[in-house]
């Protein structure tokens, strides 16, 4: 479903955010991308919705190459759940969810906020699924708690029946106590809608609990790829210890630590 082939990303300032990653995520998989801050998780995810372009290599969605010509079309199949929720403040919960279907709505309807009945019904159904109540519909999102805002963000993401869902640290700005609930919701929703998920996290325990598969990146390299069981504490140790030291031998230490599991294609 998702394919990265020898992808590299070098920012104009010379930062090598992604170094030669090849990865294939099959249809319907819940794949967790694990890695410390600055590892390149966001950059990796952003290459799938075209907010970032690889400097080398190619990214495929389904069987289509993501390119300048195809990106606008392909974006409609990809939804994103953001770390900072990225909802429009001062706009109602209802309009925020409906705005997830904007590509399907004509300009004049969008301008007058006249969404078709089936989209309005869908928005209500999704808000119900994420655990909000009808009283929330007309509230401004800025009046909701962080957890509720992320629920609105998840409802918005499913408005267009996405084939792929990108979740970039969806719980990083939330209270740890409610992180589990949000991830459970994300997991359940993607199962029910048969969505392929690429979800970045930095907590190994959450990764083990929700991922069908876990990949780990560090300093732009893919350093681990395996099942939750294969992500042992030793591997985690190496991953985060390496990140703290940022020494030259980090990658070597890490490769040594996860040698048995290392399954880079």
């Amino acid at each position: 479903m998702l394919r990265f082939e020898n992808v590299q990303k070098r920012f104009p300032d010379g930062t090598e955010a992604i170094r030669n990653i090849t990865l294939h995520v099959p249809q319907g998989q819940f794949c967790v991308v694990l890695g410390p801050s600055g590892a390149g998780k966001s950059t990796l995810l952003r290459m799938l919705n075209g907010l970032s372009r690889p400097t080398q290599g190619s990214v495929y969605l389904g069987n289509e190459l993501i390119s300048d010509q195809s990106v606008q079309q392909l974006r409609k199949k990809v939804a994103t759940v953001h770390q900072q929720f990225n909802l429009t403040p001062r706009m109602s919960v209802a309009l925020n969810v409906l705005s997830g279907a904007l590509p399907q709505v004509s300009h004049w309807r969008a301008a007058l906020c006249l969404f078709p009945a089936e989209l309005r019904a869908k928005a209500c159904r999704l808000l119900d699924e994420v655990g909000l109540t009808p009283e929330h519909l007309n509230r401004r999102v800025s009046e909701l708690s962080g957890g509720q805002q992320q629920r609105v963000g998840i409802a918005r993401a499913f408005m267009m029946d996405p084939a792929v869902l990108l979740a970039d640290e969806p719980v990083a700005s939330l209270d740890p106590r409610i992180s589990r609930g949000i991830l459970e919701l994300l997991h359940r929703q993607s199962r029910n809608h048969n969505t392929t998920v690429l979800c970045s996290l930095h907590q190994p325990d959450l990764a083990r609990a929700f991922g069908d598969r876990i990949i780990a990146v560090n300093q732009g390299r893919l350093v681990f790829d395996g099942t939750p069981d294969q992500l042992t504490d030793t591997v985690c140790e190496a991953l985060y210890h390496g990140a703290l030291n940022r020494g030259h031998d980090t990658s070597a230490a890490l490769s040594a630590a996860c040698e048995p599991e290392l399954a880079v294609a």
Partner: peptide, 15 residues
Amino acid sequence: GPQEALQSIGAGQVK
């Protein structure tokens, strides 16, 4: 943030 969210689903500049 909100602009990126809408751009990333292909909503277009005007919307």
